[in-house]
Design a protein around this nucleic acid. Structure first.
Lengths: 218, 218
DNA sequence: TAGATTGTTAATCGATTAACAATC
DNA sequence: TAGATTGTTAATCGATTAACAATC
């Protein structure tokens, strides 16, 4: 029984959910049974207040005087995240990055199920990646109509990203995991995008080093 | 001439810098000469106020009645980010992900320079990735002492992450780009970490789809 | 000069933290 | 019951937005 409509929950809270899920999962694996918000805060470098506020957006998972049962908490957050849904996912672009993501990520663990990989280059078709055969993009339409995947992972050059995204929406894709170095624009409501800019992330390190240098100089 | 000590600038602002740099770079490439905060806000889905506030943390780059000169702005933000520093960077782990990052990312574009790739598995040593020869980890110490790299990209299993990070700090590494699915703990000041959790990112899509389903049901 | 747009201060909004009564 | 710790309300803090005087 959710305490509020999910759409009322701030993105700040939602963004922290996967990290909660990770830490709680680790603790469950280690055999820890219960935890207080204070102890969890310590481990995650958060405040106890924030943890209690965050969890209470979704329900009263704790018990006064006791704390939180970790296994139960993990199950609840998993439900919220839709971990067991196994949303059908396709990867477009079987280059270095597409290949690595297919092989490296355990999609199941994250609520998704990889069902197809496509590449522009017909020569790549037929090669096997992560137990799947790479298909030529010419088969994309028929595949989507047949299989109805919901998530597309874009591992393509930025020049192709926007056009392909529009096409995929018309084929029924509702979510994009976009590695194309280009912020795709989605006007369609109910379609969500995670733009992953690895370049932005490493630039933060360059910034930090550059800044540290400067403060030494001054 | 910075307006404030860089350490006073909030991380919210800093995190937006790479995105500014990207958008401004695109506009320069397209030949646009000047832009007002209002026009840029429109393109980036921000407010004009926020753009002016953000840029003013670092200096008065604009001109009243005119706006901002894009080429100049790009140069300035590049300086702030340390884009031309070419910080020496090594990758640890030449598996799928390490290989893909080496081949896929243009480190130069992001203020870094890839100078070495290492792998645990001696069998991988000698294979070429991104114009570099993969080295066995047994050579890590001597390499770091000789070359003094500043950034380490961790593409290794989470079980190995913390120990290796500590070792690398003792070898002079100041920054980690951590893909190991584990939040490494750094007590050392002046050492920075970007924990990249690709799983967290794709879970957000699962969450969004799961949530959309629910609002339809209700 | 008049018009445009910045730099900057003040107002608003939202997120985090603190406090405490409820309750297991 | 007494102690612990939650759920929740109130206070604080910081980030975003609005407003406008400065100025190109």
């Amino acid at each position: 029984m959710p305490k509020a409509k999910k759409s009322d929950i701030s993105v700040s809270v939602i963004k922290r959910l996967p990290r909660y899920y990770r830490f709680i999962g680790e603790l469950v694996k280690q055999g820890t049974v219960r935890i207080s918000s204070g102890e969890l805060a310590e481990k995650m470098s958060l405040t106890a207040s924030q943890i209690r506020q965050d969890l209470n957006c979704f329900g009263g998972f704790g018990q006064q005087g006791y704390g939180y049962n970790l296994a139960e908490l993990r199950t609840e957050i998993g439900k919220i995240l839709g971990i067991s849904q196994g949303y059908k996912t396709i990867i477009i672009g079987a280059g270095n990055l597409g290949h690595a993501i297919a092989a490296h990520m355990d999609f199941r663990e994250y609520g998704c199920r990889l069902v197809g990989i496509f590449d522009n280059d017909p020569k790549k078709a037929g090669s096997r990646v992560a137990d799947l055969e790479v298909m030529p993009v010419s088969e994309l339409d028929s595949f989507c109509i047949r299989e109805q995947p919901k998530i597309a992972v874009l591992c393509i050059p930025k020049t192709a990203a926007q056009e392909l995204a529009d096409k995929l929406i018309s084929l029924g894709i509702n979510a994009f995991w976009n590695f194309s170095h280009y912020d795709i624009k989605i006007t369609h409501k109910d379609v969500v995008v995670e733009n992953v800019h690895l370049g932005d992330s490493i630039m933060m390190l360059s910034y930090a080093l550059n800044n540290a240098d400067e403060s030494e100089k001054e």
